[in-house]
Amino acid sequence: TFTSIVTTNPDFGGFEFYVEAGQQFDDSAYEEAYGVSVPSAVVEEMNAKAAQLKDGEWLNVSHE
């Protein structure tokens, strides 16, 4: 299960995956970082959410 939350205070020191406002979700980078295949429906969902981000916001993507 993939989830996401919007934050204005990303923790770059941890093992977190963020999408910056104005960027798209990079499923290849996510797969490389976590060894998890990302279904195309999830990629579309995360890109739709990322498109709604305002300046200074980040989308924190995770999975269980």
Rank of each mutant, 00 (worst) to 15 (best):
F15N: 15
A29H: 06
Q24L: 14
A33L: 15
N47I: 05
E16V: 06
M46Q: 02
L59F: 01
A33I: 15
E45H: 08
Q52G: 10
G35D: 05
G14D: 08
V36A: 04
S40F: 09
G22P: 00
Q23H: 14
T1G: 15
K54H: 09
L53S: 01
E57A: 01
N9M: 12
W58I: 01
G13C: 15
A41R: 11
S28N: 13
N60K: 15
E57V: 00
G13M: 10
A29C: 09
H63E: 03
V6N: 01
F17P: 00
V61Q: 01
S28A: 15
V6P: 02
K54A: 11
N47R: 09
E32M: 13
A48E: 11
A48H: 14
D55K: 13
E64I: 15
E57H: 05
N47L: 03
T8V: 10
A29V: 08
G35R: 05
V42R: 02
N60Q: 15
T8R: 10
V61R: 00
A33P: 03
F17G: 02
N60R: 15
S4E: 07
G22Q: 06
V61I: 13
M46S: 02
Y30G: 03
A29W: 08
T8I: 10
N60L: 15
F15Y: 12
N60I: 15
V36W: 00
F12N: 05
V19N: 00
D55E: 14
E45L: 10
E32K: 14
G35F: 04
D27Q: 15
P10Y: 01
K54M: 10
F15L: 14
V42E: 03
T1A: 15
G56F: 06
V42W: 05
V19H: 01
E31H: 10
G13V: 07
H63A: 04
G56T: 04
F17H: 04
S28P: 04
A41I: 12
E31P: 00
N9L: 08
K54E: 08
F17K: 01
V19S: 01
P39C: 06
G22V: 01
E31Q: 11
N9I: 08
Y30C: 02
V42G: 01
D27A: 15
Y30W: 08
S4R: 00
G22A: 04
D27E: 15
Y34G: 01
A48M: 13
Q23T: 13
A50T: 07
N60D: 04
V38T: 03
D11Y: 09
D55L: 10
S28G: 12
N9V: 09
G22N: 06
P10D: 03
L59N: 01
F25Y: 02
L53I: 04
A29N: 05
D27H: 15
W58G: 03
G14I: 08
P10T: 03
N9E: 13
V38M: 05
F15E: 13
V38R: 00
D27L: 13
E57N: 03
D55N: 12
E45A: 12
Q24E: 11
A29D: 05
F17L: 02
D26S: 08
A51H: 08
V43N: 05
Y34I: 04
L59M: 06
E16N: 14
G14R: 09
H63G: 04
E45S: 09
V19F: 03
K49S: 06
T1V: 14
E32V: 11
N47A: 05
E31V: 07
A29K: 12
S40E: 12
A50K: 01
V38N: 00
S4W: 13
L53N: 02
D26P: 04
S37M: 12
Q24M: 14
K49L: 12
Y18T: 01
Q52Y: 07
S62L: 11
N47H: 05
T1K: 15
H63F: 13
V6A: 04
V19E: 04
T7W: 00
K49V: 07
A29Q: 10
A51D: 05
A33N: 08
D11S: 11
S4L: 05
A41E: 14
F25S: 02
E20F: 05
F25R: 00
G56K: 02
A29S: 07
S37T: 14
V43P: 00
D55I: 11
A33W: 13
M46C: 05
W58Q: 01
D55A: 10
S37R: 13
K54F: 06
S4T: 10
H63Q: 06
Y18V: 04
G14V: 06
V38W: 02
P10N: 03
F12Y: 07
V6F: 00
Q24A: 12
V36M: 08
S28K: 15
Q52L: 14
T1P: 11
S62K: 15
V38A: 03
N47E: 04
T7F: 00
S37Y: 11
P39Y: 00
F2P: 08
A41N: 13
K54R: 12
Y34M: 09
V36P: 02
V38I: 08
S62P: 03
S37G: 06
A21R: 08
Q52W: 06
G14H: 08
A50D: 01
T7A: 04
A48W: 09
M46D: 01
E32T: 10
G14W: 08
F15K: 15
D11K: 11
H63L: 06
I5E: 14
N47V: 05
D11M: 10
A51C: 06
E64W: 04
T3Y: 11
Y34D: 04
G35A: 06
Q52C: 11
Y34C: 08
V43L: 09
V43F: 06
N9G: 07
Y34K: 10
